[in-house]
């Protein structure tokens, strides 16, 4: 994954960059399977690697597909990223270790959901029961976000054709 990201930073051809970002998503999906998050893995594989890449390619068909080479390498952003990265690594020193069953995240409400999911909702997949049953309103909010994004895209790209037509007639 690190190698993929490195190539994304280096490459100038946007087609290659977009395909690499698809590969990156797919690798992330594999990682999610290893980390027991099967639901997340297939969402990432379908939505992150699939739909995102298609959208990017669709946009690339409409714009120039080659990135121009910058005149100078940017030192300040690199410095900012390194400093922020160092701060984050320092922060991880206090994090609970990988797979620690006594981490705070595992002790709070998660056991309740795991114990009560089947008796209360009869859904064996806890991810589904939390998503659709316990936090159903959040999922409703999520669909509203998608609707808003869809409307936004339609407004941005749909208005274009109408606006262009009168322009052509004017010419």
């Amino acid at each position: 994954m690190a190698a993929t990201v490195f190539m994304i930073v280096r490459l100038r051809s946007l087609f290659a960059v977009v395909m690499l970002s698809g590969i990156y998503s797919l690798l992330a999906a594999v990682m999610f399977v290893v980390l027991d998050a099967v639901d997340v893995a297939f969402t990432e594989a379908a939505v992150g690697a699939g739909i995102s890449t298609v959208l990017m390619l669709g946009a690339l068909a409409l714009v120039k597909s080659e990135e121009k080479t910058p005149e100078r390498t940017a030192i300040l952003p690199l410095l900012a990223a390194l400093v922020a990265g160092a701060a984050l690594v320092y922060g991880t020193l206090d994090m609970p270790h990988y797979g620690d069953p006594n981490a705070p995240a595992q002790k709070h409400v998660a056991p309740t959901y795991l114990m009560e999911s089947v008796p209360k909702t009869t859904v064996p997949n806890v991810v589904t029961s939390v998503l659709a049953s316990y936090r159903g309103y959040d999922t409703l909010g999520e669909t509203v976000v998608i609707l808003t994004a869809g409307v936004g895209v339609l407004l941005l790209l749909g208005g274009r054709r109408r606006r262009r037509k009168p322009g052509k007639e004017g010419e």
Binding site: V47, Y113, V127, L131, R135, T139, V145, A149
Partner: peptide
């Protein structure tokens, strides 16, 4: 823990939007 999975499912979809 199922809770991070739920959060991230939502986040992936919102990210694509």
């Amino acid at each position: 823990n199922p809770l991070p999975h739920v959060l991230i499912l939502t986040a992936i979809v919102v990210g694509v939007a």
